[in-house]
Design a protein around this nucleic acid. Structure first.
Lengths: 199, 199, 199, 199
DNA sequence: GATGAATGAGAATTCATTCAT
DNA sequence: CATGAATGAATTCTCATTCAT
């Protein structure tokens, strides 16, 4: 345990937590495991984080923040220039790929019935709103329709794809590249080629 | 503690477990909570179930079994008779609606990185295979394509819809019926109207 | 650890807690110490008591309850028959002597600034009210005077005497009997021979 | 963190500790709380104080020292000049009032059964001896009598009065001035008007 | 002096599981 | 079948104390 600086320590903790939470779930992961994996003293975790919840929340806040940056950074390119759709999707997926584990945790926690976490919705809302703000209609009914459409036939499939990719290829024992291309085909033939509600 | 018979006791336990697991997750639920909610003595749970895992697995086996029955019971009707698609979808959804909580648990557990549970895939596989067995092609490549297509643009959206329905309406504060109809529209315009790979 | 019955186990826990709390204070005593001293499994303590606080409170409730019984049981004798005052005081002290440790804990906790425990006042109030109810005057001012008088020149000296007896004799290295008789003399010459306010 | 000088820092620490110890007890107060409240770095506390114990002890030594000064400064006036007793009592009380919190801590700690602290006795001894040294008799028996008398009917009631004043008025919801005057009346009618043992 | 970071030990509380009846 | 009692191992979190700069 080299006396790394604050930033490093926190990064290590978050990295270990991310890995473990996505592997065993939030409640299935003990702070002990995290400190062990991060190579830091357990009490130090409580020096930097109020409690265990604070760790996940930190993870979630981080991804929300990074997504914001990504969205605002790419929005100009994405929406105004003429970039082939599949290309931009692929790029987006690369971005999401890195966040795979956190997204997985986010989904797990959002599935719980208590209202503790709804980051999954929060996140979806952000992404979708940023994407449809161009052709936004002031009609709230219409907006709801679009939201539902984007969420269930766009956001959710993509997220599942990201989250389940590895597990899928393992379970069905198939080639990753082939799998990706299959998914993109299907996605193109459904969500991407569908006429949006209200358009 | 009404001395119900064996069946009743087990049913109570499973019902309580289902509710709690879906509310707090498997690891977030203690056996104590289950026995309390089920109104049975804690030790009795261990009389009927080997351990806590045995409870979830029982839940999963049950749903797999019921799905089997549902699928084989309806397959003739679904595929060979001329039933409007949306109608059959609605019927299927009613069936799934009852299983909402177990499906939620199944998804949560399947998201974990360790290979403890892949009931979600197992279940998807069953459903999808039963649906495509008619126009099944012997080409494994083709089969993979279909599988991916059905899973990510069919199964996953529907499951998410079932699982997130209540949470969605609560979070976005919207009317349930409107929401359902919105979803069905979108689903019709994407998955249902897409040309299947290989066809 | 003979599998004693419930009553015994609880008694053991409370006895151990009483001893330890009075020896080291509430916060200075760990539940581990209690379970060790009581010879029971630590988790068993949490089977019978909600938390550590519940243990002290149980101790306090017990003594309040026993005091009630003592007061109501002796009130007839104490107030209506002609018993020499010093005798009744001595008897009362024997009763209190047994409760020495709990009284000590009660005082300690009541000294804390937060309003968590005011059993010391509650207890005093009970005792004093029972003692003055005979010559109670309906004048609240007068009642306050009596209360103050009884508390600070009666209740407090006696309590201190009970609580500090052993420590005093140890610290000043003096004979217990002599000490007791000295105290009783002084108490007779002050509180007992004073004219009560309002009389 | 104003870089105050050494004296200031120590004063701040002690002040914070005094407040917290009296509020939550010694064991209920963490060094963190103290450093927070004092507005100094936690490690700095360990620069000025050997350990946590050293803080309380410092508090106790201080009050012992101040009491010494007070006693020796006022002794001539108190005992030899003709000052009305109640006046001198009132003055003494003003002095004690400021020390209320430390006295409270002192009492709490002295109540513990282990012999860690007997500052309460030490303090009482000092005060009482200074008060009776005039009419001290060489007879040790007599001295014991006087000590007991002064302690239980003089020192203890006064201390309790000081320590419980605020809590009393809060609990019984009564006027402070009225309370003080009630106490002084009672105290005059008991301790102050009693014939001292041996006189 | 002063400080942020670090740590080992221990505290309170909970859990899954078992036992004896 | 059913149950109250019991238990060992964890789990979350805190504490007093120290180190390096």
């Amino acid at each position: 345990m080299p006396k790394g600086n604050k930033e490093d320590t926190i990064r290590n903790i978050l990295k270990a937590a991310e890995e473990l939470f996505s592997e065993k779930g939030f409640n299935g992961t003990s702070v002990n495991m995290i400190s062990d994996k991060a190579g830091v003293n357990k009490a130090l975790i409580y020096y930097y984080f109020k409690d265990k919840d604070d760790i996940v929340n930190s993870l979630f806040e981080n991804i929300i923040h990074e997504s914001d940056e990504y969205v605002s950074g790419s929005s100009s390119a994405l929406n105004h220039e003429v970039i082939p759709l599949q290309d931009s999707i692929r790029e987006e997926m690369n971005f999401l790929q890195e966040k795979q584990k956190i997204l997985s945790i986010m989904l797990m926690e959002s599935l719980k019935g208590d209202d503790s976490h709804n980051y999954f919705f929060k996140c979806a809302q952000k992404v979708i709103e940023s994407e449809i703000e161009a052709n936004i209609s002031s009609d709230p009914q219409e907006f709801q329709r679009l939201l539902v459409h984007e969420f269930f036939t766009g956001f959710v499939p993509i997220m599942s794809f990201i989250i389940f990719k590895d597990k899928w290829c393992k379970y069905f024992d198939c080639d990753t590249d082939q799998f990706i291309s299959n998914f993109l085909d299907s996605f193109s033939n459904t969500h991407l080629s569908s006429k949006k509600p209200g358009s």
